[in-house]
Deep mutational scan, measured.
Amino acid sequence: RDEMEEWSASEASLFEEALEKYGKDFNDIRQDFLPWKSLTSIIEYYYMWKTTD
């Protein structure tokens, strides 16, 4: 399955904003920016995001 497909463009930009603010503190990212996403989903997205450019 492709996690990228499940993320909207606005969620992707929220994620990048959160990453700038918190770094890899995924709990804070989830709490402040993406509370409707699971922690697992955020972490999986991060690793996919990191490996695609």
Rank of each mutant, 00 (worst) to 15 (best):
I43Q: 13
L39W: 02
A12D: 01
D2V: 12
K24M: 08
Y45G: 00
M4L: 08
T52K: 14
T40L: 02
R30N: 13
S8V: 00
S38E: 13
T52Y: 08
T40V: 04
A9C: 06
Y22W: 02
W36E: 01
F15Y: 00
D2T: 14
A9Q: 10
S38F: 02
F33R: 07
W7L: 04
T51A: 14
K37M: 04
M4V: 08
G23N: 05
K21S: 03
Y46E: 06
W49I: 12
K37E: 02
E16C: 03
I42Q: 01
N27T: 11
A9L: 07
E6A: 14
I42A: 00
G23P: 02
L39A: 05
K37T: 01
W7S: 03
K21W: 02
Y45Q: 06
T52V: 11
F15L: 04
Y46S: 07
E17N: 05
S13M: 13
S38N: 08
E44G: 04
W49K: 15
D28M: 14
A9E: 12
S13I: 07
K50Q: 11
E16G: 01
T52G: 12
L39V: 09
Y45R: 11
S38R: 03
E16A: 11
D53S: 01
E16T: 04
A9F: 03
N27R: 09
E17L: 11
N27E: 15
M48K: 13
E11W: 03
E6C: 00
N27S: 13
D53M: 12
E5S: 11
W36M: 04
L19D: 01
T51Q: 15
K21D: 06
Y47A: 15
E5D: 09
E5T: 04
S8D: 06
Y47H: 14
S13Y: 05
T40K: 14
S10R: 11
R1T: 14
E20K: 12
S8H: 04
I43L: 04
K37L: 02
Y46W: 05
S38A: 02
S8C: 01
E5W: 05
D25H: 11
Y45V: 00
I43G: 07
L14Q: 04
I42Y: 06
A9V: 08
A12C: 09
E6N: 11
D2N: 13
E11D: 15
K50D: 05
T51C: 10
M4K: 05
S8E: 00
W36P: 02
E44Q: 12
D28P: 07
D2L: 15
G23M: 03
S38M: 11
M48E: 10
E5A: 14
W7N: 04
S38D: 04
K21R: 08
T40Q: 14
E44M: 00
S13D: 09
A18H: 01
Y45K: 02
E44A: 07
E3G: 07
W36V: 05
N27G: 08
D2K: 15
R1A: 14
K37H: 00
M48L: 10
A12Q: 14
D2M: 13
K21F: 07
G23S: 03
T52F: 07
Y45E: 03
S8Y: 13
E44N: 14
D2Q: 15
A9D: 06
D28W: 13
L14T: 02
L19M: 10
I43T: 10
G23R: 02
E16W: 07
K24V: 10
W49S: 14
Y46A: 02
W7T: 01
D53A: 11
A18C: 09
K24W: 00
K24A: 13
E5P: 09
E20C: 04
D25S: 15
E6L: 03
S41C: 04
L39M: 06
G23Y: 08
I42L: 05
M48R: 14
E3M: 13
E20D: 09
W7I: 02
I29N: 15
M48N: 11
T52R: 13
S41Q: 10
A9M: 01
I42E: 01
K21G: 02
E44H: 08
E20S: 08
Y22N: 04
E3T: 15
A12I: 11
Y46K: 03
K21A: 03
S10N: 12
E44S: 12
L34Q: 09
M4D: 06
W49F: 10
S13R: 14
T51R: 11
T52S: 12
A9T: 09
L39G: 01
E3F: 12
W7E: 00
E3I: 12
E20V: 10
T51M: 06
I42C: 04
A18G: 15
L39N: 14
R1V: 14
L14H: 00
S10T: 12
R1D: 08
I42F: 05
A18S: 00
K50V: 14
N27K: 06
L19A: 04
R1P: 07
E6P: 08
E3K: 15
E44I: 03
E11Y: 03
S13F: 08
T51G: 13
R1G: 14
D53G: 13
E5F: 05
D2A: 13
K24I: 06
A18T: 00
Y22A: 04
F15C: 00
S38C: 00
K21V: 07
S38I: 05
R1F: 15
E3N: 15
S8G: 06
G23F: 08
S13N: 10
E20H: 07
Y22D: 00
E44T: 07
E17G: 03
Y46R: 04
E20N: 09
S10P: 03
D28I: 14
W49V: 10
Y22K: 04
K21Y: 06
L14A: 08
L14E: 00
T51I: 08
E44D: 11
E5H: 05
K37P: 01
E16V: 06
E17S: 08
A18N: 01
R1Y: 10
E3W: 01
K50I: 05
M48Q: 13
W36D: 05
Y22H: 12
T40M: 08
S38V: 02
S41K: 03
D53L: 05
E16S: 09
M48I: 06
T52P: 12
N27C: 09
A12M: 13
W49M: 14
Y47T: 15
I43R: 14
E20Y: 07
I29L: 08
D53Y: 06
A12W: 02
D28F: 12
L14C: 05
I29S: 06
D28Q: 15
Y47S: 14
E17I: 05
W49D: 06
M4C: 09
S41H: 04
T40H: 11
F15A: 01
K50P: 07
Y47L: 03
K37A: 03
I29H: 04
N27M: 07
